[in-house]
C-alpha cells in the first residue's frame, strides 16, 4: 500500500517541472514558434534560481528571478526567430547550447569543482504525507497554472489572438493583431514557465545545483506537447503518465519479485510508455498552421 501511494507521490513530483515547461512550450508553439531552447531555458532557470535563492536567502525570490531569466531567454528566441527570422530549429538548439555553456562557465567561475553549495529550498506541504505531501509548486502547477493557461488560450481575446497568429499570421495581421508582439509575448511568458520548471529541480527538490541537472527533461516536454496535440490538459496528462511510469519503475526495480528484471529495461520504461502513447494517440496530429514559419509582411 505505501508503495502504491509512493508511486502516485512520485508521479506528481516528477510531473511538476514537465507541466510547467511543457505548458510554456504549448503557449510558444501555439503562436507558431517551436522553442527548442526549452532545455537550455530550463537549465538557466535551474541555475539562476539556485544563485538567486542563495543570494537573496529566499527560495521564492529564487523562483521569481528564475522566471525572469526564463523570460529573457524567451526574448532571445524572439530576437532570433521573430525579428531576424532565422530557422527555428537552429535558433532553438543554438539557444540551448549557449545557455547551458554559459551557466556551466559561470558555475565554474563561482566554484572550481568543489562540493555543491546548499541554498534555501522549499519544503513539502502537509508534513510530507504520502501523495498530498508535495512542494507548493506542484499544487501551483496543477491547480493554478494549468487551468489559467487553459482558460486564457480558450476563452480570452488574448488567447484568440495568440492562436490566430499561430494558425494564420497573414489573417491575424490583416485583422490588426501584431504578429511580432504576440510572438514575443508568447515566447517570454512561455520562457518564464520553462525557467520555473528548471528552478523546481534546484530550488524545490534539491537546494543545490549540479551540472546537467535538467538531463533532457526539456526534450521530454517537446514530445509531451506533440503527444498533447498542443492542448493544455492532454499535455498535463502526458506529464503525469511519464511521472507515473518513472515512479512505477523506481518502485518495481527494488522489489524482490522484479529485482531480476534487467535494469536497462526499467530505465527505458518511461520512454517506452511515452513512445507507445505517441504511437497510439499521436498519429494524424495537426500542427499549428504557421508552425516553424517566420512571418514577414509582404
Amino acid at each position: 500500500m505505501t508503495q502504491t501511494l509512493a508511486v502516485l507521490t512520485m508521479m506528481l513530483t516528477v510531473a511538476t517541472p514537465l507541466v510547467f515547461a511543457g505548458l510554456g512550450e504549448v503557449i510558444t508553439e501555439r503562436s507558431g514558434v517551436l522553442n527548442l531552447g526549452i532545455e537550455g531555458t530550463m537549465y538557466l532557470g535551474a541555475f539562476v534560481g539556485f544563485l538567486a535563492s542563495g543570494a537573496l536567502h529566499s527560495a521564492w525570490w529564487g523562483i521569481l528571478v528564475a522566471m525572469l531569466a526564463g523570460a529573457a531567454a524567451g526574448a532571445l528566441m524572439g530576437l532570433l526567430t521573430v525579428t531576424v527570422g532565422v530557422n527555428q530549429h537552429v535558433a532553438g538548439i543554438g539557444t540551448t547550447l549557449l545557455l547551458v555553456a554559459a551557466c556551466n562557465f559561470v558555475s565554474r567561475l563561482k566554484s572550481s569543482g568543489g562540493a555543491s553549495e546548499q541554498v534555501p529550498k522549499l519544503s513539502k506541504l502537509f508534513g510530507s504525507t504520502a501523495v498530498i505531501g508535495q512542494y507548493p509548486l506542484t499544487y501551483l502547477a496543477l491547480f493554478v497554472v494549468a487551468p489559467v493557461i487553459w482558460w486564457v488560450l480558450r476563452s480570452t481575446g488574448m488567447g484568440l489572438k495568440l492562436r490566430a497568429v499561430g494558425e494564420s499570421p497573414e489573417a491575424a495581421d490583416a485583422a490588426g493583431v501584431s504578429v511580432p508582439l504576440t510572438r514575443y509575448l508568447a515566447l517570454t511568458v512561455g520562457g518564464a514557465f520553462m525557467g520555473l520548471g528548471g528552478a523546481f529541480l534546484t530550488v524545490a527538490m534539491l537546494g543545490s545545483f549540479s551540472l546537467d541537472i535538467v538531463s533532457g527533461r526539456g526534450w521530454v516536454c517537446i514530445a509531451l506537447v506533440i503527444f498533447g496535440r498542443w492542448k493544455v490538459w492532454p499535455t498535463v496528462g502526458g506529464a503525469l503518465l511519464f511521472g507515473f511510469a518513472e515512479g512505477l519503475e523506481k518502485q518495481l526495480a527494488i522489489t524482490t519479485t522484479f529485482a531480476s528484471v534487467p535494469n536497462e529495461l526499467w530505465l527505458a520504461l518511461p520512454y517506452i510508455v511515452v513512445v507507445a502513447a505517441l504511437i497510439i494517440w499521436g498519429r494524424g496530429v495537426r500542427y499549428p498552421g504557421a508552425y516553424l514559419k517566420a512571418y514577414k509582411r509582404a
Binding site: 505505501t2 508503495q3 501511494l5 509512493a6 507521490t9 512520485m10 513530483t13 516528477v14 517541472p17 504520502a130 529541480l201 527538490m205 534539491l206 543545490s208 549540479s210 551540472l211 546537467d212 541537472i213 538531463s215 518513472e246 515512479g247 523506481k250 518502485q251 526495480a253 527494488i254 522489489t255 535494469n263 536497462e264 530505465l267
Partner: peptide
C-alpha cells in the same frame, strides 16, 4: 537503484524516495 546517469540528482532523489517508501 541505478539511475543510469552520472549527473541527475533530481532522479537520484526520487530513486531514494522510492527506497524510503519501500
Amino acid at each position: 537503484s541505478f539511475i543510469n546517469s552520472f549527473f541527475d540528482p533530481a532522479t537520484a532523489k526520487t530513486a531514494a524516495e522510492a527506497q524510503i517508501a519501500a
